[in-house]
């Protein structure tokens, strides 16, 4: 199993208030599978995604990616593991405004240097329709182009698993379709995709839809 989340719980403590974001939630994503995670706001979708991405340690339960219990690793090794196995796509893109499209995609290699990085950037840009925009900065791009740039950056280190948090949330229908098609193709090529979305249309493109309610998978 590419991603196996087993009985994880996570409680946020804010001063005297506690919020149970996840309660014994479990989820799996196999290689070649595109899974959509749906649920109302505050149901724990994003927490689940961050836990799956080795960014947020659960209070209980385990998360394994490529058979590695990621929270058994220390912080630095977890970062190394993330760099080699997991790619993130966020609704807000999180592109660096001072870097060109090419350099934003290349920024993934800060964590994992690789030979032939420029050639791979060229290939990804071509696949995502960004070749003409490689030397442009984010403020010169359309919203769709920005999300495609973020997607290319997530794929730069050839991760096994892509975690996408509302990747089409800011996009128009055409651009959303491009991104979803790409994620589908990625899964079809053997990768795993876990996508958090509110959008039923976007979720419909996934092979499987997992619903959450109050921190539990239902």
């Amino acid at each position: 199993m590419l991603l196996a989340i087993r009985n994880i719980s996570k409680t946020y403590r804010q001063r005297e208030r506690t919020v149970a974001a996840l309660a014994e939630a479990s989820l799996t994503v196999a290689a070649g599978e595109f899974v959509a995670l749906q649920g109302p706001s505050g149901c724990g979708k994003s927490t689940m995604l961050l836990a799956a991405g080795a960014l947020l340690a659960p209070d209980a339960g385990t998360v394994t990616v490529c058979e590695q219990d990621i929270y058994a690793l220390n912080s630095e090794h977890r970062a190394i593991f993330r760099a080699g196995h997991i790619g993130f796509v966020f609704q807000q893109f999180h592109l660096m405004p001072y870097l060109s499209v090419q350099d934003n995609i290349l920024s993934a290699t800060l964590a994992q240097p690789q030979a032939g990085a420029l050639a791979r950037v060229g290939m990804l840009a071509e696949t995502l329709g960004l070749t003409a925009r490689l030397l442009h900065t984010p403020d010169q791009l359309s919203v769709g182009e920005r999300q495609r740039t973020a997607l290319a950056r997530a794929l730069m280190n050839q991760p096994k698993l892509i975690l996408a948090d509302e990747p089409t949330g800011n996009l128009d229908a055409d651009n959303a379709a491009v991104v979803l098609r790409f994620l589908k193709d990625y899964a079809a090529a053997g990768g795993g995709v876990l996508m958090v979305t509110h959008d039923a249309g976007a979720a419909a493109g996934a092979q499987r839809i997992v619903r959450m309610q109050a921190g539990r998978v239902v």
């Binding site: 993330r82 760099a83 964590a111």
Partner: peptide, 8 residues
Amino acid sequence: ILRAMGVR
């Protein structure tokens, strides 16, 4: 995002 990408 750099930390998420695995930058130490």
